[in-house]
Amino acid sequence: MSTALYPLASLEQIEKTPSREDGIPYELEEDLRAHGCKLIHEAGILLKQKQVAVATAQILFQRFWYVTSMKQFGIGDIGMGALYLASKLEECPVRMRDLINVYDLLQQRTAHTRATMIASASAPSSSSHPTKEFRYTPMSYFGSTFYDLREALVIAEMQVLKRLGFNVHVVLPYGTLVNYLRVLGLTDRTDVCTRAWGYLNDALQTPVYALYAVPTIVCAAILLTVRHLGIALPSAPENRWWELFDAEWEDLWSVCGYIMRLYRDRSIEDRTRVMGMLSKKGVRQWLDEHKTVDPQT
């Protein structure tokens, strides 16, 4: 498949990402990627942004971490920059101040949620410690917080362009999904269309759009859908439906694995750890704390 149409990571980048070379474990990097994409999605909803811009931003965000380490740039800043850039690429630009205000809200809410979870985990009886309701404190119009976030936004957008070599072409999967469902005769099933569409959106929280071509990802979403709904499609060796779309079974199964891992249960410790690593400062602090694990160091 042409990498000009589907810009994909190289095998070397996949085997050892810059973040893993800096000491971030694979599962932690995967969780940080997913959380960064969730923030992009939430910001898009609050800004009433088009889904095409949100999806483009999430794909650019995932690509970025195959050329740069999370030790150098925070996932919050890069997510904000990716969404700002994608809004321009999809011709639905947002005001810089609106985007900054929304991300400030999301970061405050994340910090409040993290503090609440830590307090609940440490307190044996939650009834004696009632949970405080989150209240957003707007930043000062002329305060340093806004100007710091604006500078971070400008730098993040510039770094996404620079480190991706201005190769920001993105092919979204939604039109391909509709065509494939039409070929398979499933367009009259609302539950199939809704669930498959949902899997494609969930897959944006994973690196699959930087690893596999869109037809493979769409076929994986259809596979998960028909498996969960109990719909039979031709799968005999001489008549496999996914081969009609030039997809390989091993690739389909791999994409399905990425998507299904999103739904696994995570401990409070894992969730609070991710929430505390939205900035490069948090990542570096975590790395410093875990340098002493190896007695040889």
Rank of each mutant, 00 (worst) to 15 (best):
G81D: 10
G276M: 08
L164F: 08
L47H: 10
R20H: 03
A121H: 07
T187F: 00
I118Q: 13
T194S: 10
D251K: 15
R189F: 13
C219E: 02
T216A: 01
V283G: 08
V170D: 00
T216H: 01
P18Y: 05
S254H: 10
S128P: 00
E91R: 10
S2A: 02
S127K: 14
S254P: 01
L149I: 12
T113F: 01
L184D: 02
V52Q: 09
L172A: 05
Q296T: 15
A4Q: 08
L85N: 05
L28F: 03
L184S: 02
Q62F: 00
F61L: 07
Y103W: 15
P7R: 02
E30G: 06
I75W: 02
A53L: 05
M117H: 08
V208G: 01
F61K: 09
K281Q: 14
A156G: 05
I59V: 14
R135I: 06
T110A: 13
I45P: 00
Q296N: 12
R63I: 13
V160W: 04
T292K: 12
Q58S: 14
S69A: 15
V274D: 00
V160C: 05
E29N: 11
T110H: 00
M158H: 13
E27K: 12
K280I: 01
R63Y: 06
E27H: 12
S69N: 08
E27T: 11
Q107D: 13
A213I: 13
L200T: 03
C193A: 04
R33Q: 09
P173D: 03
V52N: 06
A9D: 05
R20L: 09
G143D: 12
T113C: 04
F134E: 07
T206D: 05
T292C: 08
M277Y: 04
A115W: 00
G76Y: 09
A82C: 15
Q62N: 15
T137A: 09
R109A: 06
V192H: 05
P25Y: 06
T3C: 06
I78W: 00
S19A: 09
A203H: 02
S120V: 14
V171Y: 02
Q13V: 02
R20A: 04
